[in-house]
Write a protein that binds this DNA or RNA. Structure first.
Length: 120
DNA sequence: CCGATGACTCTGC
DNA sequence: CGCAGAGCCATCG
């Protein structure tokens, strides 16, 4: 599906989610739940997951920067997307320990904290 | 209309 | 850390 057609078919809530995902900084990660919360949709993480699932590649969303609340990818080990996501993250400096990313080090929220309270 | 199904999350044991 | 249960709710058969 063409990019513009897809976008125009989205609800206001979904467009908001798209904008938030696009604003995740390179080298940072966040969770489905956090995105939903930022979009004013607390408790609706599944909506974010569903959107990423149906979004055309043409949108070029940084889907790899979206993880589950426990710091792992939403894909099971062995799934091509599992390796792809970790590969993309490593490419931008986000490390993982056995498929688990530490939000304290790479979480998007940490950027906000540092801006408010300073490094360390 | 109903039950099943998720790129989810939180609580409780 | 693991697992079950319960919310969550748009989609689909």
């Amino acid at each position: 599906m063409p990019k513009s057609v897809f976008i125009s078919a989205l609800s206001l809530e979904q467009r908001k989610i798209v904008k938030i995902i696009l604003s995740i900084p390179r080298g940072r990660v966040t969770s489905y739940g956090q995105i939903a919360a930022r979009a004013g949709l607390p408790g609706r993480a599944r909506l974010v997951g569903r959107l990423l699932r149906i979004a055309p590649d043409a949108l070029k969303l940084p889907w790899h920067r979206v993880l589950r609340a426990d710091g792992q990818t939403a894909f099971p080990a062995g799934d091509p997307a599992f390796d792809e996501q970790l590969r993309r993250l490593l490419a931008e400096g986000v490390e993982h320990k056995n498929g688990k990313i530490d939000f304290a080090r790479f979480g998007w929220q940490r950027d906000l904290d540092e801006q408010l309270w300073g490094p360390r």
